[in-house]
Amino acid sequence: MNGKQFLEMLSRLPARVWLQAILALIGFVILAVLGFAVIAGVAAVVLIVLLGFKAKTWILNLFRRPPPPEPPARQDRKVIDVQYEIVDRSNDRTPRN
């Protein structure tokens, strides 16, 4: 079946079939638009909820007292050389208190 025969077959279809096809196409478009609207609506609700939580935190932080400033780091640090000895008490026979 070539393109010309296909078009001739379509032209012989009754008007009822054409009306049903047009209504199906319109219904499909409406469902697609509503589907996108639902997706966009859900995304908008999620965005509003997230922004609401952020706004709540921001407003609460406005009325809280700021934390006390940290003391400045000490500038008079001295490095001391230390010697240490490791004592192994596993072989010690004296009782512990």
Rank of each mutant, 00 (worst) to 15 (best):
40 A>M: 08
44 A>D: 04
64 R>L: 12
33 V>C: 07
27 G>E: 04
26 I>H: 03
65 R>Q: 12
63 F>G: 08
30 I>G: 06
22 I>M: 00
45 V>R: 13
35 G>E: 00
25 L>A: 14
52 G>V: 01
65 R>C: 01
41 G>C: 01
75 Q>I: 13
66 P>K: 10
53 F>I: 09
26 I>W: 02
72 P>G: 08
65 R>H: 09
79 V>R: 12
34 L>W: 09
45 V>P: 03
39 I>P: 00
19 L>M: 07
44 A>Q: 08
44 A>P: 05
31 L>V: 11
60 L>R: 13
37 A>N: 10
7 L>H: 03
3 G>Y: 00
15 A>V: 07
60 L>H: 11
71 P>R: 07
22 I>H: 00
73 A>M: 07
19 L>A: 03
65 R>T: 11
57 T>H: 11
43 A>C: 02
33 V>R: 09
34 L>D: 03
30 I>F: 07
30 I>C: 04
63 F>P: 01
48 I>G: 01
45 V>E: 10
5 Q>S: 07
21 A>W: 04
79 V>C: 02
69 P>I: 07
4 K>T: 03
73 A>C: 01
74 R>E: 07
25 L>D: 08
20 Q>L: 15
39 I>R: 05
8 E>V: 01
47 L>F: 08
69 P>L: 08
12 R>K: 15
46 V>E: 11
39 I>Y: 09
75 Q>R: 14
75 Q>V: 14
40 A>Q: 13
